[in-house]
Write a protein that binds this DNA or RNA. Structure first.
Lengths: 229, 229
DNA sequence: TAAAAACGAACGAGTGTTCGTCATTTTATT
DNA sequence: AATAAAATGACGAACACTCGTTCGTTTTTA
């Protein structure tokens, strides 16, 4: 599966994500009608990503956000209780998207090697499709309150476990070499993260997602696969 | 070479780094005597790292810094022209340390495989020794002005080239497999960065630098080494 | 003509930075 | 060795500004 195939198969678009955000936080919003809420949330999210990509969430002022969205300060506060809560809302949604997708792709395959490939691919392709979300989630995690940051850590360890479980399973079947699978899972996660943390580099070097994914898979398989005698 | 050996062999300590910072920025400081300057710079740097690790540089106020260092607001401004310049000073010094060390270790070895190992090890061990510098350099890079950020990009590509050159050289000698060495260099850099970006994870899982380095090397060599017939 | 949504001036708290003043150390002179 | 003079460094109140947030009002929608 390449990126285009993934993109077509993966239903959700930016508007759908905005709708999910609305439904999940409806009780904290003063906006009643879904249509207006979703449309404006989409504008707000896009503006947040655009502004914070360059200077970070802390440095983004509500006036920046007002200017970028074309909405007034007062209007913005109808969509979220405060700046800090806006951060949590985005982080929560970002985590939900990743967890939901990875679990889904892990269940689709049966053979450990295919499962490993599917999960690694899904993560990188998803991070390409929702790059701003991924970048934001990583870079702004430390601005969360302790409870929020704990959720980030838990999520990191959850996705790590998905990978190490697959490796474990594959070792039991004699497909993968015996190794420190926890550590290998960490390495895989590091490689995945590279893609959305340093996109400027790959854009400049004209390296596509598909090339990147293939290289990651080659590297992981070269290390993990049991040598055939 | 393990971390302890690296640590002993690597001369510079925190005080020496503070001295380098003083000598490099002496003309912008109102402090004349080296001894006082170095002692206070050490306090300032430590305070900056301690504060920004949790909330980032933008969110650190000069009053936070004053409180943590025990120095008055007025005194702080005798050591750097302004908050933004303080950021550049730390970033510049961080880059200088990495470049200087990597170039040194690359020159020490002759055989491509040994050179590759030495450079990878040196980078990770250095990031362990000066973890706050590395974390700060990565996380606060986007707060720099365009010129500063360009320097960061150039540095990233310089260290990538050190690695890809070694791989190229090794391929010519038949030691390494023919591959997209640029991309492999990127992967190696991603693995190295993982160590200082997610230290909390490795501390919790009781994984030492030496274990981490060995795993990275095993992975890289498993992928790069030509198969012996 | 209500209900819903958007508006933006106003508020108090917190920001980076300056500068006149004071304490301390070094140098020069007796 | 004692003292005066000069240089150095530290201090923190004060300034102009920006921040997140509120709320009474106006505009738009149904």
């Amino acid at each position: 599966m390449n990126y285009d195939a993934f993109k077509k198969g993966y239903g959700a678009r930016h508007k759908d994500i905005a709708r999910q955000v609305f439904l999940a936080n409806q009780e904290n919003m003063r906006i009643k009608k879904e249509k207006t809420a979703v449309a404006n949330l989409e504008k707000i999210l896009a503006a947040v990503f655009s502004i914070t990509y360059k200077k970070g969430f802390q440095a983004m002022s509500m006036r920046d956000l007002s200017l970028k969205t074309g909405m007034s300060l007062g209007a913005l506060y109808a969509y979220f209780p405060g700046k800090e809560e806006l951060l949590s809302i985005i982080q929560d949604q970002g985590r939900y998207m990743v967890k939901d997708t990875l679990d889904r792709f892990a269940r689709q395959e049966d053979h450990p090697l295919e499962k490993l490939r599917a999960v690694i691919r899904a993560h990188i392709f998803l991070s390409e499709l929702f790059r701003p979300w991924f970048y934001f989630t990583f870079m702004e995690a430390r601005n969360l309150k302790p409870a929020g940051f704990d959720a980030v850590k838990a999520m990191e360890e959850h996705t790590q476990k998905i990978l190490s479980d697959i490796l474990e399973e594959g070792e039991a079947e004699g497909i993968f070499r015996p190794e420190n699978h926890e550590l290998t899972a960490c390495m895989i996660k590091a490689l995945q993260q590279e893609w959305y943390l340093k996109r400027w580099k790959y854009t400049r070097q004209k390296i596509t997602v598909d090339m990147f994914v293939d290289h990651v898979l080659a590297m992981v398989e070269g290390f993990c696969l049991a040598v055939k005698e």
